[in-house]
């Protein structure tokens, strides 16, 4: 009756709140409390699942709810989809009890992606803390498979302890790729640990950066990201060269529930990956 908010021919409805069902192909425990679900990618609204590095899914555990979980697999491999999950509470614990053949619900992929195309021809600095390596793994896969298109690649990674390191075999492989450096640090070492001890930002003193031509991608706890971008700025990177991925409470993942607001931004759809100037002024304020 009233000028309709939606033209009828446009109503090829994307009902963002209904999950697609997907079967678990394999569960791999990365550490004591973090595991990777390898999933048969379902059709999403009738289309094959595809995503860009940095995007996430809302992962549904039967009867208990959903969690926003980044996609940690290789975007070039369309026949498998992986989520690496840190068991911290209700939903992630339920997901941790799943076995091969069990079914989960998936909505997605949602959100913005890491700036891969912008990084072409430039050096790339990746800095990850803890589970923050998971959303960056699809970027690393892509950088390596398209190795010639990028300059030097530096991967800085910090975990609580040697036993908390994710993707240990892959970290080793990545460090062997030409012109690629992987530097790891832990908060607390153990008797067998011969590597660095301390925060991720301390690793910057071991690398040389061609600041004007570097793109930095940072993901980890907010405090780690803050120290990291401050350090990057000190080393001459402009805010425009720095990207971070943020976390907030999310119920819908598509900008309808209001929970993830950060000033004018919806972390779910304007992020989670932001170019630093989009959010920097608000990160310095408390309780935004």
């Amino acid at each position: 009756m009233i000028e309709s908010p939606v033209a009828d021919n446009e109503i090829e409805a994307v009902n963002a709140m209904t999950p697609a069902l997907a079967a678990i192909r394999r569960v791999t425990w990365e550490t004591d409390d973090t595991f990777t679900l390898l999933i048969d990618p379902p059709l999403m609204n009738g289309r094959p699942f595809s995503f860009r590095p940095g995007q996430f899914n809302m992962v549904y555990a039967f009867g208990l709810g959903e969690s926003a979980i980044s996609i940690s697999s290789d975007p070039a491999k369309s026949n498998s989809l992986a989520h690496t999950i840190h068991r911290v509470g209700t939903v992630t614990s339920a997901l941790s009890r799943l076995r091969r053949g069990d079914t989960i619900g998936l909505r997605g992929p949602f959100g913005t992606a890491w700036p891969l195309e912008e990084a072409v021809g430039k050096d790339v600095c990746i800095a990850a803390g803890g589970i923050g390596l998971a959303p960056l793994r699809p970027v690393i896969y892509t950088l390596i498979s398209r190795r010639k298109e990028f300059g030097r690649i530096v991967i800085l990674y910090g975990a609580r302890s040697p036993l908390d390191l994710l993707y240990r075999v892959e970290l080793e492989e990545w460090s062997k790729v030409p012109n690629t450096e992987v530097i790891i640090t832990v908060d607390r070492g153990d008797s067998s640990w011969k590597g660095h001890i301390g925060v991720v930002t301390a690793l910057f003193s071991y690398i040389k950066m061609d600041s004007p031509s570097t793109i930095a991608m940072v993901c980890g706890p907010e405090i780690m990201m803050k120290y990291t971008y401050e350090e990057l700025e000190r080393r001459g990177l402009s805010q425009e060269q720095i990207y971070i991925s943020m976390e907030r409470n999310m119920k819908c993942g598509v900008g309808l529930c209001g929970h993830c607001q950060f000033g004018p931004r919806f972390i779910c759809k304007d992020g989670p990956v932001f170019r630093l100037p989009q959010v920097r002024h608000l990160l310095d304020k408390k309780e935004i």
């Binding site: 709810g65 959903e66 529930c257």
Partner: peptide, 8 residues
């Protein structure tokens, strides 16, 4: 317009 979800 904010909303949440509940599971049962």
């Amino acid at each position: 317009f904010c909303s949440t979800v509940e599971d049962a």
